[in-house]
Nucleic acid binder design. Structure first.
Length: 900
DNA sequence: TTGTCATATCGAACTTTGATCCCT
DNA sequence: CAGGGATCTTTGTTCGATATGACA
């Protein structure tokens, strides 16, 4: 039988509780053994209970899965397993407990898990076992339950910092890829591969999705996807992908962008920034989940693409030259162009659906070898993060010395010998699954990279069109979210890169913003990061069109501005027109909509309408109607006061406990206070308030509150004509000058379960400010000098004490010390006088070293016992530099002192 | 199997206007 | 004796995010 020291987590009766109860019941029915066990367990638990709350918590964390306190009852012959004792999770190991308790020492056989007395008697054992229920630690129900531990504020902060750093790294990576897409050499090479009919795209005035289809198809059929890049430097990787017609998904996507740009189309490189979670421990659980159920993506059509029996794309039949490649491409385009663009588009969608079902069903069949699994002790997230950092560094290196790519590559290769990137790369290269694994992402097969091309022939105003060359999907922006979700990739940040800039276009691809909003970083920080990048991006998209000559430049710029503002409007509109969620929980923190039932205590709907729809019969209101309510006092803090005759819009019942010992009442003048007659809390909305209008200072008198002070929550709370002087001891000056003042209460400090006001300086009428400050400065100066004087006096006094003690000590030493060391030298004294064995000429010089004072004092013993040293000023010398003065007595005794 | 809902749990935030003793 | 500083002790309630289980 095993008993666990399990913290109470649920009030509900669980299976374990039932089992324990059953055990308890059973032990009652059992004889002495069960009772003995129970006693022992209780003793053990008593010791366990001594551990601090913290250690208890640790136990919860570390031991729940294995169950704590594996106390073994010796008489349970359930095989070898029952005799094994796991690592004790308690602070005090059983051994320690044993050493501390004689009683337990007597029961030490528990640890052995065997009792020779009992094991020798099998019949007896069998008899006992009939009545004992054995509970295994590793019962499925127990193992399934995860320990519940919330992340602390510190952990959250760290997670957010990591999240931000990761975001910046990914932004850097995106910019690097974007700049590689602008490489004229790569663009020219791509153009040289392109069949003549596709090159005509560059002259199309009204670009449409259909016009782009053959080009996308050509790209898709000419480049195959492999799991990872073979090059560390992205530009080299891109060149290599161009050469071999094979590359990582991001390289293929980048090549497509480069191709579009080569054709003078406005194109962006778009990427999901698959960043580590903003919340602590989320990724870990994801990993474990992934470990159990590796998923392959919806868009793993790349895998299909790899396995396509396409001769031109098979590695064995790698084209030997660009001309060969171009010819093959031409043939492919001929085949592809047989079908109409619309038909091919439909086919793609159909293909996608097929893959979806196929891949989903394969989910549990395939074991995908993931990078990082061979890392052993190092966490996958750590490796990924380091890798991203490596990439960012590489990006920096690339942008700063683009001309020395080869050198950089060499140096980076050397560097990579020691970097986790290389490890990962090796792992990736060893992979034989051929599954598209996005570099820097643990998610497999998710659509992480694609292009956006501006089609001025779409809509009336033109639009940015999603083009995924890796998966040959055109204008499939609505499908990205679902595809990413299918691959367990959170679509939190979708960023479009162009012209070394970046723009957040998540709204375009995310239909359910409320699901990702809480997983995104603080928007003000993110906006600040993107602001300069957005400008770069908007300046580049279309503005750098090589078609435009100088005369058209301004027109193009205007056009771009319109285009950008139109896109901003489009994204904004999308943000404001999100469909109503169907589940009620979504309304809890929805940025657009609200249900009345999910409002908090301090919220209210004002105005209550319009009703935008219904969810499970509950009316849905705009989130803008949700207003915060505060008490009158709380509004005062924000520099607002209640309008006259405003009644509280909500009254909260104060808890019974709080009411005890406190008597609440109405104000003397009968006004509505924040606390009502029955201890209720009256709440008001902002619309019931107006800017604070405090009585102004008159005749040098500061208007004070009922406590004779001024609450200075902010500058707004100061009565007109007054000023806050937040200096210590300044009240004394005002008092001295007989100027009216009020203590400035600036907040509360919570101590001993109660809060106490914190004061900082005073509030005085503005006209006295200068006088008081002047007097304060003088007073402080005076106080400072007084303090210095006191300090010096104190120092002198301490010196005097020190020296006196040294002299006394020396005197005692002279009188007794030698006698102790050489007792034979001490001559029996007469009249309490000591006759020294040393002569007066052999005067000793003792050095007293007092560390506390860091002073050296040279002392000369004197012969005359009752002599009192006199240090005349004539006999002293002073070293000006070191401020050391040597004072001498006429007897020859000298002393070094430091002048203060 | 998945989505929805209700409920339990727990970390974090909020709460809010002394008393007494001793030294100078 | 007045005034100022140090010390006492270390809450209890509520909110809201999230885990969990029931149920459709």
């Amino acid at each position: 039988m095993k008993t666990r020291n399990q913290p109470k987590r649920h009030r509900k009766s669980t299976g374990e509780d039932d089992m324990i109860e059953k055990c308890g019941h059973d032990t009652k029915t059992n004889g002495t053994l069960a009772n003995t066990s129970r006693e022992g367990v209780n003793k053990f638990l008593k010791y366990g209970a001594r551990s601090s709350r913290r250690s208890k918590r640790q136990n919860d964390d570390t031991c729940d899965n294995d169950s704590v306190n594996k106390v073994e009852v010796p008489a349970t012959p359930t095989g070898p397993n029952t005799t094994t004792t796991g690592p004790s999770c308690d602070n005090e190991s059983p051994q320690q407990v044993k050493s501390e308790s004689d009683d337990l020492a007597a029961d030490s056989y528990w640890e052995d898990g065997s009792n020779p007395n009992l094991t020798s008697d099998n019949d007896h054992l069998n008899q006992i076992n009939k009545g004992i229920t054995i509970e295994f630690d590793s019962s499925p129900a127990t193992a399934k339950r995860k320990p519940v531990r919330r992340a602390s504020a510190e952990e959250k902060e760290v997670a957010e910092l990591v999240h931000r750093a990761h975001l910046l790294c990914l932004l850097g990576r995106g910019r690097l890829i974007d700049s590689a897409c602008d490489d004229p050499l790569i663009q020219a090479s791509l153009l040289s591969l392109l069949p003549a009919n596709l090159v005509k795209l560059s002259t199309v005035t009204n670009l449409t999705v259909d016009a782009l289809t053959p080009l996308v198809h050509w790209l898709n059929s000419h480049f195959r996807v492999r799991s990872s890049s073979s090059e560390i430097l992205f530009r080299l990787g891109l060149a290599s992908a161009l050469e071999t017609h094979e590359g990582a998904p991001e390289e293929i996507a980048a090549l497509s962008v480069a191709m579009f740009r080569a054709l003078n189309l406005s194109a962006r490189f778009v990427s999901i920034l698959d960043v580590v979670s903003l919340k602590p421990n989320v990724d870990e659980s994801d990993d474990t989940l992934q470990g159990k159920k590796p998923r392959k993506g919806l868009f793993d059509s790349s895998t299909v693409m790899v396995t396509q029996p396409n001769e031109s794309s098979s590695p064995s039949s790698k084209p030997s030259s660009i001309i060969d490649m171009a010819n093959i491409a031409l043939n492919n385009i001929k085949n592809a162009s047989e079908a109409s663009p619309k038909a091919s588009r439909k086919r793609k969608v159909k293909k996608l659906d097929q893959i979806t079902s196929q891949e989903m069903s394969n989910d549990r069949k395939m074991d995908v070898c993931e990078p990082g699994t061979s890392e052993g002790s190092k966490r996958k997230g750590d490796i990924e993060f380091e890798m991203q950092m490596e990439m960012a560094l590489a990006a920096t290196a690339a942008t700063t010395s683009e001309h020395n790519i080869d050198n950089d590559a060499k140096s980076l290769n050397t560097l990579s010998d020691f970097s986790p990137f290389k490890k990962l790369k090796k792992v990736n290269c060893e992979e034989s699954t051929g599954v598209s694994t996005a570099v820097g992402s643990k998610k497999i097969g998710a659509p992480l990279y694609w292009a956006e091309v501006y089609c001025n022939g779409e809509n009336s105003t033109g639009k940015w069109v999603h083009i995924d060359a890796v998966n040959a999907i055109i204008d499939g922006e609505q499908r990205v979210e679902a595809a990413a979700a299918a691959c367990k990739t959170f679509l939190r940040y979708v960023v479009a890169f162009a012209g070394q800039g970046a723009k957040d276009v998540t709204r375009r691809y995310c239909a359910k913003w409320y699901k990702i909003a809480s997983h995104r970083v603080d928007s003000s920080w993110w906006d600040a990061v993107l602001r300069p990048l957005k400008d770069l991006e908007s300046g580049a998209t279309g503005g750098t069109s090589r078609l435009s000559d100088n005369s058209n430049a301004s027109a193009v710029r205007d056009n771009n501005n319109t285009r950008n503002s139109l896109e901003d409007m489009e994204l904004e509109t999308k943000a404001l027109t999100e469909p109503l969620p169907t589940n009620q929980q979504a309304y809890r923190s929805h940025h657009l909509y609200a249900l009345e039932r999910w409002l908090t205590k301090y919220q209210i709907l004002h105005p209550k309408g319009p009703i935008l729809g219904f969810c499970s019969g509950h009316p849905v209101y705009p989130r803008a109607c949700v207003q915060m309510l505060h008490t009158k006092e709380r509004w005062l803090r924000e520099g607002l006061q209640l309008k006259v005759n405003e009644l509280p819009v909500k009254v909260l019942k104060r808890s019974v406990k709080l009411n005890k010992g406190k008597s609440y009442g109405v104000d003397e003048d009968g006004e509505n206070d924040c606390v009502g007659p029955g201890g209720d809390i009256n709440l008001f909305g902002k619309w019931q308030t107006e800017p604070l209008c405090l009585p102004p200072a008159k005749n040098g008198i500061v208007p004070k509150n009922e406590r004779g002070q001024v609450d200075v929550w902010s500058e707004k709370c100061l009565p007109p004509g007054t000023v806050h002087l937040g200096f210590p001891r300044i009240f004394a000056i005002a008092k001295k000058l007989e100027i009216d003042y009020a203590p400035a209460m600036v907040g509360f400090e919570f101590r001993n379960g109660r809060s106490f006001p914190l004061y900082n300086g005073i509030v005085v009428c503005t006209e006295f400010k200068d006088i008081i400050l002047e007097a304060y400065a003088e007073e402080e100066e005076r106080r400072g000098s007084e303090e210095r004087r006191k300090h010096e006096a104190q120092a002198l006094s301490r010196w005097y004490q020190l020296l006196s003690s040294i002299v006394t000590r020396q005197r005692l030493n002279n009188r007794y010390a030698e006698g102790i060391e050489h007792p034979s030298n001490i001559i029996p004294k007469t009249n309490d006088k000591v006759i020294h064995t040393s002569t007066s000429k052999e005067s000793m010089s003792h050095q007293a070293n007092d560390e506390a004072c860091q002073q050296e004092v040279l002392l000369k013993p004197y012969e005359e016992e009752d002599h009192e040293h006199v240090f005349s000023t004539n006999d002293s010398t002073c070293d000006v530099e070191s401020s050391i003065r040597i004072k001498r007595c006429h007897c020859g005794f000298s002393i070094e002192v430091e002048e203060l």
